[in-house]
Design a protein around this nucleic acid. Structure first.
Lengths: 181, 181, 181, 181
DNA sequence: AATGAATGAGACTTCATTCAT
DNA sequence: AATGAATGAAGTCTCATTCAT
């Protein structure tokens, strides 16, 4: 009956876990493209589960949104951790902006409580900043808060106007110049 | 304040105009603080009119949002027109960010049709940029599109994190450095 | 000032009367083409008066509908009075059906109180029937109520399916055969 | 009445089906007596379900109206199929008129999309006509379209004036005479 | 008598959430 | 643990009717 190699109890949990992921994936896809106003039912449909299942895993729509944001931030922090060196910060910056231009997640998620999650991202960015300053790519008096602020700002901006690649590069160029030693 | 130079037979119109303004003010207040998802009914309540009156003036919620945006942009363009000189652009930039930090309007209004209005703002910013470059405050190869992009970005960013004055200044400092000759 | 040859008081009344007619014409046009669900405001627009004027003349939408119906029936009764002879009834019948196919009035007006007005129409039809029977065109045992019923029925039917001229003729042919001696 | 031959795992469906029928019944009752302008909320009330349930089953008021019409036509076509012989057409005709006199449905439903459903009814009537002509009860040159037209007409007429049984019979008598050989 | 802005009840519809199966 | 039907509050919008000018 249970389709796992372990006991029933564990089997069920595996199922549940699988559903949880599918729901999160679907939710990211849906809210990312249609904004947070999209209906939870559409998420369920895309995830291939019934609406009740969504609410069993995330008792509230806000819980679902928060979970997406948390996962997204964790992913970004992971990305950042793989970078480093003189221009790790720059690469991360650009990468983030590219993502934001394609998705709406970060923006619309504003308002959802973002407890510790941002903390992780902040630390990762701090590390990149430290390395860039050590390499002399970034001025020494630049501090983490404004880097974070610029990061968030440009991401938000990117998904507004319909930036093309050139505009994105010219905009980043100004910021990179401002950060440069 | 101005009572108008006519007075006979235009009485009702004056009332309607007064209501129109009250509705716009209320709408700006409401949507600005709660986002565009706030209800039209709340706008009516704050404006002190019945819901039907709101819809008589703005047949659709989108019409109302568009009207707010239009008025806001006109106001900003007007502001810009009074500035100039070496650091007119910088002043305008900072002023805008301060406003955005207090309001949500600009952000959430994205998606609403923004016909010619943005045109005005773009031109005003272009003029400020020209003057700043003439005065040598801004590098010559900087062009209007990226200035607009940065402007929008930082406004968006400002109303996310809850920037304090210091963070705002440090963030703008990076951008101004990036723009500098 | 008053554009009539009599006293001011009469002048004003003439204006009001003119408005009343314009409103009735507009209402017939509007309700006839869009059904009784059309808005009173549209009637006012077509009549070229303000909505308040419509309600001054007809305190209720139902009053307006009743007035249209009354006028329509009076008109039909007048038409009938000009006919007669062996086939006056047949001509009237056909004429009515043609009208109904183009308008919706009679149908949708069902439900509105139709006090004495139908009386007039009934009498006119009764007279036509009498003459047709005198001429031997219609069977003697046919009575007014069923003629009225058939009249109403075919009018209603005509504005449903989209009858073409041929179908209308074939349908009337059956009824005329049924009435024939 | 019938409990269905399945029973496991289809429980909810049975409930839903039951509700669907209750809503259709309620809707037929309501729209039939008050016209299509009656509110969907009243339908819900009479059906004993919440308003949301009505819209879950019929996403639009028009969908609900169309469903009623479809069911009504199917029922009529079924009735017709059980008849036949020399006076099947006459019986069907009379039966339909009796129904119409009590309900408003057929009339007001005009305008709602009536896809294939009418087709079924048309065929059934065609068959009755053929049999009546074979039996010599109806003239050979009478064709289906005018029979349908008369059918519709008299139904419409019946629910206008408040026909009593006698008037109904006298009216049908004229039509039957017109159809007779 | 006319105007037209304002009113507010009520219509349709959506959607987060609950709960019987 | 999953399903999906049911719920009902809330939102947008329409329109008959009132009333100040």
């Amino acid at each position: 009956m249970s389709r796992d190699s372990f006991s029933k109890g564990v089997g069920v949990r595996a199922d549940a876990q699988r559903n949880r992921e599918r729901i999160l994936d679907a939710a990211e896809e849906v809210f990312t493209h249609r904004g947070t106003a999209a209906s939870t039912e559409e998420v369920a449909r895309l995830a291939g589960v019934a609406i009740g299942t969504v609410f069993r895993h995330f008792p509230t729509k806000d819980d679902l949104l928060a979970a997406i944001l948390k996962r997204l931030l964790a992913r970004l922090a992971g990305d950042a951790a793989t970078l480093g060196g003189a221009d790790g910060l720059h690469v991360f910056f650009r990468r983030l902006v590219e993502q934001a231009a394609a998705k709406r997640t970060v923006v619309d998620l504003a308002g959802v409580s973002v407890p510790a999650a941002v903390g992780q991202l902040g630390e990762a960015v701090g590390e990149l900043l430290r390395q860039a300053q050590a390499a002399g790519t970034v001025r020494d008096d630049v501090r983490r808060p404004e880097v974070m602020a610029l990061l968030v700002s440009v991401c938000q901006g990117a998904l507004q106007g319909g930036w093309d690649v050139e505009l994105q590069e010219r905009t980043l160029a100004v910021i990179f110049a401002g950060l440069a030693a």
